[in-house]
Design a protein around this nucleic acid. Structure first.
Lengths: 177, 177
DNA sequence: AGGTAAGTGTAATAATATAGCAATAATTGC
DNA sequence: GCAATTATTGCTATATTATTACACTTACCT
């Protein structure tokens, strides 16, 4: 079981997330003899601004704003393809959005916990989920090649906030009576 | 464990799939006091032409062709929304496509087996997968509300075909030497 | 330094989906 | 049965996400 859910949803020193991600990206590129060009690095950098996924056109916007000149879709999509290829980022099918991968180095079939409240996404890799999927598929005679698992719900902080809000409301209602 | 993988990938009397689906849809609409209008029924019917998902614009095309007049996107998207709402169909996020639900009556959090060769999709619902997901999410403090699980791979018939093809190729290569 | 491959710029367009409003059909309350 | 209300459809326009095609530039390799 591997997960960045503690950092993703809580207060933390995010600079470290960013730095590690960039460092890992660089070493991975060297290992694969691929080039982390300025554009590619900028895109990765943007995706690591937070633990919230970004749509391609948000990236285009932000990149255009930062560079002063219009960045066009193919530029960004090419960078995204490159980063996806190297396993440095993931695409979230349910959101049409992209997010940095916190553990690009360890091979993993991962799944994502999408908080519908704060929008942050954590990535996990759990053997039991994996095994359950593969074995159940096998029973159906199906050979698993890749999987997309995206889970929508509430992270701990948001759940707690909601409870507070809810009891506040209840208290208010009671006061009204 | 519930699954339509045996019928979805094999030869079978597909008229029965279609008929049951339509019958279930009707009774479900009555139960929910919703109207299965001609347009909605046509869309459902189209989605049950096979076990392969259809994109919204394919539906628009086919509906236009069948009716002789241009059917426009909102018409189809509204019908899709209605059918999704009632749990009669599903949307496959990884394909941007829609498919009929084989068991609309039993509440289920389902996952999909997408054969990359024949394009057919089976729907399953397995407690162990579900439990694995929920319990692993819980360990991360995450409250699961809904899930998207789409598995890409090969169904039995396609796997067998591929093996035959592959050994044929091998035999051919050996003959060449 | 010259040839090749990789990366980028740009215009155009494809594919998927939604917003907004007018027109029509069905249902409800009386 | 009929007016009032609600649900559904028709239609125009447009948003959002992604790709194709081709010219141009930069980096890499010997």
């Amino acid at each position: 079981m591997m997960s960045n859910s503690t950092t993703a949803y809580q207060q933390h020193d995010h600079r470290r997330c960013l730095e590690t991600a960039l460092a890992q990206a660089k070493s991975r590129c060297i290992a694969r003899k691929a080039r982390l060009t300025p554009i590619r690095e900028s895109v990765l950098h943007l995706l690591w601004q937070s633990h919230r996924p970004l749509g391609a056109y948000k990236i285009i916007e932000q990149l255009s704003a930062a560079s002063g000149k219009r960045v066009l879709p193919p530029t960004v999509y090419r960078a995204l393809d490159f980063l996806l290829e190297l396993g440095l980022i993931h695409r979230l099918a349910t959101l049409n959005a992209y997010i940095g991968c916190p553990f690009p180095d360890s091979a993993h079939s991962d799944y994502f916990l999408l908080c519908r409240e704060c929008g942050s996404v954590a990535e996990c890799s759990a053997d039991n989920v994996n095994q359950a999927i593969v074995s159940t598929a096998e029973r159906a005679g199906f050979l698993v090649e890749s999987q997309t698992v995206e889970i929508l719900g509430l992270c701990t902080p948001c759940r707690e906030k909601n409870q507070i809000t809810h009891s506040d409301v209840t208290a208010q209602q009671e006061a009204d009576e």
